[in-house]
């Protein structure tokens, strides 16, 4: 068995905001009718929490569920527990018309923290990132410059950004450039 390795191990940039590659993160894509019982049971099995509503983030006891689209969720859990959680999810789904796949190694995750984190992301995404519009509990899929990304706030201090692993370096450099000291706009 080869050793799992994240997209940019230990990558870190300090500027207006601190940008860090978040390391290995277990991610399971779950597609299906989110209103049905088997899907809700699958979410509970993976995260120990509820199924999030429209654009919602639902933190459970053992993981987090992110709303990706009307029929898709992204379930976050520790990386080394993915196989075990996936088994539970598949069991909970039974013969329901749904799909659960381990996508941990297909994505890269970054944390953007610090007082100017909002501004750094606002430079890159066509999203209203004002504190009134974007707060913990909301997830937004959008684009970051030229690549798709999903953004949410695990707490009031910082953001998490998920993008495809193949564009991890591009995304990291982008965030670094947006956080260049002296480039503050001061909107938020």
């Amino acid at each position: 068995m080869s050793e799992p390795i994240s997209a940019l191990p230990g990558a870190r940039h300090d500027g207006l905001a601190r940008i860090e590659e978040a390391g290995l993160q277990g991610m399971i894509t779950l597609r299906g009718d989110l209103a049905t019982k088997p899907v809700k049971a699958a979410v509970a099995a993976a995260t120990g929490g509820k199924t999030p509503g429209l654009r919602g983030v639902a933190a459970g006891k053992t993981g987090t569920a992110l709303w990706m689209s009307p029929d898709e969720l992204l379930l976050l859990c520790p990386y080394d527990e993915v196989a075990q959680r996936l088994e539970k999810v598949t069991a909970a789904l039974g013969d329901a018309h749904a799909l659960a796949v381990d996508v941990s190694d297909a994505r890269a995750m970054f944390s953007v923290s610090g007082p100017a984190a909002r501004e750094v992301l606002a430079k890159l995404c066509p999203v209203d990132l004002s504190p009134q519009a974007f707060a913990p509990g909301v997830v937004r899929r959008s684009r970051m410059a030229q690549v798709p990304a999903a953004i949410w706030m695990p707490d009031a201090q910082g953001f998490r950004v998920i993008c495809f692993r193949s564009v991890a370096r591009y995304a990291f450099d982008l965030l670094g450039a947006a956080a260049q000291p002296g480039s503050a706009v001061g909107v938020y």
């Binding site: 429209l54 654009r55 009307p70 066509p126 959008s142 684009r143």
Partner: peptide, 11 residues
């Protein structure tokens, strides 16, 4: 109409 986001053209 699905996710309620005010999406701009580039999205």
């Amino acid at each position: 109409p699905y996710c309620g986001v005010d999406a701009e053209e580039t999205e």
